[in-house]
């Protein structure tokens, strides 16, 4: 940045001026000092005896969880199936609402930038700002416990995720393809279907399957607040300190998540 011309006319270049260099070093120093102060604060509020005890506690817990109670699995198939259904139906519900919302939110497809776009963006932000567990908590109060509350919770949280990524994809399309379709005399709906939809199809498929994959994981904990699925069994087992059941449930969740990851990877690969 600074170019210094010496008396004999040769020009020197350095990345920063001397003052700039000092300021940068001071900034780093400040950062390190802040870290030390923070650590001291945390340390004062930690009961270190518990922390030093942690490895023993962990070993103890592990000992009580092993071996998993394999025959408990027979009682888990149904709740696991419920969990997958909650995730899938919730994702479908979210897609149904998120797709039109995304078109209303993208600045190149929205019917009104002054009115409709801010509303659509607000729907997306509102949905994203609340965790699905909290959505479930609220919905269980409204609709009572069960799968329905779970499906709605997953759906409401996913609208924001799918809507945001999809409207960004819509904003990134190549506008000349849209222009070309408009130039043929196509109607507004045809411009959408021919000029825009083919361009965002891969992104749409990728986003939806990715969200479904996330939802499988989120749906496993919804039972903690009574919104159906395997979380109910998890909570009950933890409550009764039945650790060999807990480990069985965790193993089953792990297996399901691996399968869903595999499925979503295959789908994305096939479409792109």
């Amino acid at each position: 940045m600074p170019v210094i011309t010496k008396a004999d006319g040769t020009r020197l270049w350095a990345r920063r001026t001397t003052a700039g260099d000092l300021a940068t070093w001071f900034g780093w120093l400040l950062g390190v000092a802040l870290t030390v102060v923070c650590f001291q604060f945390i340390s004062e509020h930690t009961i270190w005896a518990f922390v030093w005890d942690a490895p023993r506690q962990a070993a103890d817990l592990l000992e009580r969880s092993v071996p998993p109670r394999w025959d408990y699995a027979n009682q888990l198939w149904k709740p696991m199936w419920d969990t997958i259904n909650i995730a899938t139906l919730g994702t479908l519900l979210a897609i149904l609402i998120a797709v039109p919302t995304a078109f209303l939110a993208a600045h190149n497809t929205t019917p009104s930038r002054a009115l409709v776009r801010p509303i659509a963006l607000f729907v997306i932000v509102a949905s994203r700002s609340v965790n699905s567990l909290i959505w479930a908590l609220i919905l269980v109060i409204i609709f009572g416990p069960g799968m329905f509350a779970g499906i709605l919770a997953i759906g409401l949280r996913s609208i924001g995720f799918i809507g945001k990524l999809l409207y960004e994809a819509i904003e990134e399309i190549d506008p000349t393809q849209v222009e070309a379709i408009r130039a043929t005399g196509a109607s507004g709906a045809q411009v959408l279907a021919w000029g825009i939809v083919p361009q965002i199809a891969p992104a749409f498929a990728g986003i939806s399957v990715f969200r479904w994959d996330i939802n499988i994981r989120e749906a496993t904990v919804l039972g903690l607040v009574g919104a159906g699925g395997i979380g109910l069994q998890l909570q009950a087992s933890i409550g009764r300190l039945a650790w060999e059941q807990v480990s069985m449930i965790l193993l089953l969740i792990l297996a399901t998540v691996i399968v869903s990851e595999w499925v979503s990877a295959r789908v994305r690969h096939a479409i792109i």
């Binding site: 393809q177 070309a180 379709i181 005399g185 109607s187 045809q190 279907a193 021919w194 083919p198 361009q199």
Partner: peptide, 26 residues
């Protein structure tokens, strides 16, 4: 300005969009 992900035939037929209704074209 072709629709990259559509086939040659679809791109060619898109020239008829002004003459064909939405659902037929969909």
């Amino acid at each position: 300005a072709l629709i990259e992900r559509l086939t040659v035939m679809e791109n060619v037929l898109s020239g008829r969009l002004g003459y064909v209704g939405f659902w037929r074209s969909w």
